[in-house]
Structure formats: C-alpha cells, structure tokens
Design a binder for these strands. Structure first.
Lengths: 125, 125
DNA sequence: ATTGCAGCTCACATCTGTGTCAGGTTTTAG
DNA sequence: CTAAAACCTGACACAGATGTGAGCTGCAAT
C-alpha cells in the first residue's frame, strides 16, 4: 500500500503520515524507487495514533507508549507513563464535564426569558 | 486590586491577564499612572475564563459567549454558539473516554505477565 | 532622594500538528 | 513513449496562549 492509499483509508493527510514517521510513530518500507510501502496493519496503527492525538497526547507521549502496544513490551517506565496519561485524561474529562455543566447552567438561564435575562435580536459585538 | 494581586488570587500569569484584556475577555480601569485596577468580580471572571479555556474553547469563542454570562444578554446567535460549544465538548468527552478505555485495555494487558506480553527491565527507546 | 519592586508597552520566541509551495523523481495509464 | 498523477525532500507559514526581555515609568518605604 502506498502513502496515498493509507491516507485514503484512514482519512489522515499524506503530510501527517510523513510527520508521524518523522516522529517515530509509524514505520514504512521503502520500495526500489524510494516510495513508502505500508502493510495492512498500518491502518490500525494510524487509527490508534489518531485516537491518542484526539485525547491530547503529544507525539512524544505517543512515541513513549507505542512499544507497549505494538511490540507488547512492558517496562516499569512504560507502565508509569501509561498510568500517568490515564490520570491526565481523567482529569481532562473532569475539566470538560465541569465546563459542560457550566455551559448548561448558562444555556438554561439564557434560554428562559422569565429568568430575567435580556433577550435581544442582534449580536452584541 | 492591581494586576499582580489578581494574578496571585487566580493563579494566572500576569502576562495572561494582559492577554485576556487584549482579547476583550477582561476589562480593567486605569488609575492615574496608567496601571490596571480590578475589582473583586474580576477573580470570578478569570476563573470562568480559565474554566472555558480548559475545555478547549478559544479566546474568540469565549469572547462570543461572555455577554450571555456577564450582561445576561441572550441573542439567537449566542444561544446557537452555546449549544454548539456544548456539543463540541460532549464530543471531546466521548473521544477522551474512548482513549481512556483504550489505555485501560493496554494497561491491563501490559500489567499482567501471563498475558503473553514481554516484560523487560529497561525502556526501549 | 534613593532604592527596589511592580507595572507599562512592544516585540520576538516557543511549541505542535498541518498546510503549502518548489523543484525533482517514480509510477501508471493511454 | 509521453503525459498525468502520485511521490519524494526540504523549507517556510500558521494559529494561540504564554514566556521572556528591553527600556521606561509609577509607587512605596527608608
């Protein structure tokens, strides 16, 4: 599979795939003409990378965790890092829930005119 | 209250407070010597800003929502924006939960030697 | 009055994942 | 064989919140 195919299958830009490789998150085999070749497992790998990116992990953090997943290697350091990231994500979720609750509060308030809130027709910029 | 006091009370850097003002999120009254003066309500305001920042809202988004909160003004646009941000946060929470579940899966696997996973002593860089 | 800390503005640096352009090579279709 | 499409490297740009430094002014205590 060439890079464009992988990009198509994962929905990730070609540029990003090259960047992942540069960051050591993704490997490829180079064919005779120097073009990257990927096997099917790369799709799963890219999906995982995206998953972790979407959770706010940096490429460096992902790089640190990948050996656990891929080569199934577990070191004391990697276990610590995994736990730390898990905690961070938990905290992040808590932040988001608090923010969502706050927004809900505001929405409730601003959605009911009887709350005493001022309804106007146009945006106040 | 001067800017340093506000920074102290909120745990936000002085630089950031000036930035918030630049972005129209925070206002101050200038004393005779051009120094910013804040009243007590500024603390609450900065806390709110931080809450929204931590939920991933941009300063522009926050700027758009603040009138709803502060001057209690509700426009069709602001109600739409509020709902949109709420949805975005919901999606972000879902992403995080998925990532956390994935990490849990990995942690479970890498934490139990009988899983067939390789335990090594040093990090594989 | 002097010293020293706090504040002011302006401006440039940082970090990260991506976009984008240039200039060149490989692969593929016709 | 040729043209188009895909790929390659390298490099620069961006956005956004914050860090940092220079050079100057205000304020408080001695």
């Amino acid at each position: 599979m060439r890079i464009g195919d992988l990009a198509g299958k994962t929905g990730v830009a070609v540029r990003s795939l090259r960047y992942y490789e540069e960051q050591g998150l993704l490997t490829s085999v180079r064919g005779c003409g120097g073009q990257r070749q990927y096997d099917e497992s790369a799709v799963e790998r890219v999906d995982l990378i995206q998953l972790l990116y979407s959770a706010g992990l940096s490429s460096k953090a992902i790089r640190g965790l990948l050996p656990c997943v891929v080569s199934k290697a577990s070191t004391p350091e990697s276990r610590t890092a995994l736990a730390a990231e898990r905690e961070r994500i938990d905290g992040q979720i808590a932040d988001l829930v608090r923010a969502r609750d706050k927004l809900d509060e505001i929405i409730l308030f601003s959605g009911s005119p009887e709350s005493g809130c001022t309804w106007v027709e146009t945006a106040q910029v």
